[in-house]
Design a protein around this nucleic acid. Sequence first.
DNA 1: CACACATAGTGAACCATATACACAATTACT
DNA 2: AGTAATTGTGTATATGGTTCACTATGTGTG
Lengths: 165, 165
Amino acid sequence: MRADAVAALDKVFALAALLGKEMQEALAERGLTPARAEVLFVLNQQDAMVQRQLSQVLRCTPRHVTALIDALEADGWVTRSPHPTDRRATLVTLTDKGTAAAKRMEHERQQAAQTLFGDLPATDLAGFVAVADHVLRQVGASSGDGAGPGPAGAAPPRRAGGPPG
Amino acid sequence: MRADAVAALDKVFALAALLGKEMQEALAERGLTPARAEVLFVLNQQDAMVQRQLSQVLRCTPRHVTALIDALEADGWVTRSPHPTDRRATLVTLTDKGTAAAKRMEHERQQAAQTLFGDLPATDLAGFVAVADHVLRQVGASSGDGAGPGPAGAAPPRRAGGPPG
DNA sequence: CACACATAGTGAACCATATACACAATTACT
DNA sequence: AGTAATTGTGTATATGGTTCACTATGTGTG
């Protein structure tokens, strides 16, 4: 039983919790939520989408897309328009406000990456990413083999600082 | 503008998303949710707590604790009992079922850590944790200085595999 | 003792994320 | 023409949260 492995797992969740909270607060200042911001992000990459497409890209139900677009449309981030050929479908397009927000967020994402990782040696960063990739592979492998219930209590200390042991 | 920094940030979020999803599914199989599981986790560490204490440890509102305990009590994970001296307060105690679940989750958390990180050299792991710590410090520093809006669009690719550039 | 004030839990109402099911309109296929 | 698939959405539900108001207590002060 390696204690450093447990510490590493705790660290990942501490990081996720802190970054997630930070991001959420920054979004809230703009009147956005994570889920809605992601819609803007996706629409900024592949302009104008039908809701069905969005539900596939976002990996959520079509029903939830309806709700997200309802909210985004109400606040003027996107507009709904009829599909030119398919009268069942609805096209979702970013407004100017939505486009500006998406571009700003994309820029700030890269800026944040520089702030957080920018002053680290390239080798350290490469090592970090290599370990992360290793773990990502392990997750995929252990979840697909049908052996056991998986890491049920993996991340109890969701609020940074937890018990590092 | 370092591209590897952006890639590293993406990796962190990919990791968080995947592990989080994995954990949530494992908990669901036991009839638990992340928030409720955390209550069991906390109660297993510091046995028997008053709800007010719980709200402080969990960093949520007392009202939400009421809701969480309602759900946990309904499913037999915990019991409410009157505080011996303070008639306003309510003591929350793990049932046998709750204790067993908490211990099992704690065990599986350590097991998961071994699976995910166990076969990595100690030096790699130490480097990983060092980078994570560095980032945690950076987050704390950049959020407290009141300069700018923070990483608004830091983690759009919440569903693994996003655009690594 | 009486009164003011703080504390503990909760009802009511609300928002965000997300799901399943049912259903009407429309399109595609036979 | 008729059946099957597709698209969006109404309704209901679960989870994670919050704020506000209110009751029942405890605590401290004059």
